[in-house]
Design a protein around this nucleic acid. Sequence first.
DNA 1: CTTTTCTCCTGTATGC
DNA 2: TGCATACAGGAGAAAA
Length: 299
Amino acid sequence: MPELPEVEVVRRGLEQHVLGRHIRDVDLRGHRVARRHPGGASDLADRVRDTQIQSIQRRGKYLWFVLSDGRSGDPSAGGEMGALVVHLGMSGQFRVCEHGMPEPRHTHAVLTFDDGGPSLVFADQRTFGGFAFSELGAHGIPALIAHIAPDPFDPAYDQRGVVRRLVTRNSAIKRGLLDQGLVSGIGNIYADEALWRARVHGERMASTLSKAVLGRILDQAREVMGEALAQGGTSFDALYVNVNGESGYFDLRLRAYGQEGRPCERCGTPIRREHFMNRSSFFCPRCQPPPRSSKAAST
DNA sequence: CTTTTCTCCTGTATGC
DNA sequence: TGCATACAGGAGAAAA
C-alpha cells in the first residue's frame, strides 16, 4: 500500500522518465479512473492532451503533474497551467512501457508522448486510485486537494500546530495520524510503526496524551518514513513496484505491522493484532499498553 | 461542527 | 474440487 515514501519513490521515477515531455494524448479506459474528475473521462483527456510536463510534485500520498499548454512551448508565454492530480490508492502503479512491451494487467490509463518514446501506463488492480485535472491554487497546490495537510517533509509542515489540533481532538491518536487533513502521508503501516516506536497504543485518546508525547509520535512518524525513503520505499507486497516494475529490492524492517505473534524487538512479548477502523492494528501489548476502554485491554 | 461508519474494488488465502 | 468468506485499506460520502 503506497504511503508517503512509496509515492515519493514513484514521483522520482516519473521525474526521470517523463519530466519535460509533451503529452500527445491520454487514453482512459473506463470511467472509474476519472471518477474524481468533475467533467469525467472525456473532459479530463481534453485538458491533458497536448500539454507539457513542467514538474512533478507530491503532498502526502497525492502526486501531480504540473502541465502547461503544449503549443506555446514556453510556459512563461502565458500558457495556462493546471495539474493532472493522481492518487495511487491501494494498488496503483505507473509503468514506463517501451513499444512492443505487453500491456500490464489492469491498465486504466495510457499517456503517449510527441517524442514517440516510451508511454506511461497507469495500472491499478483494486481501482481505488485515479486521475483528476485541477487548477493550481495557493502555494502551487491543486485546488482539488487544498484540504490535504502538509506532510512531515514539507517546509510548510507545522508540527506544533498539528499537536495543538490533536490535543483538542475527541478521538483515538491513530485516527489522528491517519487523518490526511491533519497531517498527510501516513497510512496504516507507518502509523503502527510510529506508535510502536513511541510506545503508545493507537486507541489512546489523543486528548489524554501530553504535547510532548504527541510530538514524539509525530517525530517517529517522520523518522520511520524517512528511513523507508532512504531505502527506496517499503515493499509490502507485489502490488508496489517502481516505474520500471521492480519490486522488493528494498526492505525496511517493520517492527509492528504484519508481525502478529512474533516477539516484540524490545521486550519479547508477542505482537498482537486487533481490528480498528475496519483495518488491522499491530502493537506490543507490553510496550504499548491499551487504554482500559479498549477490548485489547481485557487479555 | 465533529466524529464515525460505510462504500468502492479484485486477487489471494483460508475454511468447510 | 468448488464455493463461501475474510482480508488488504485510502479517501470521500453519508450518517450519527
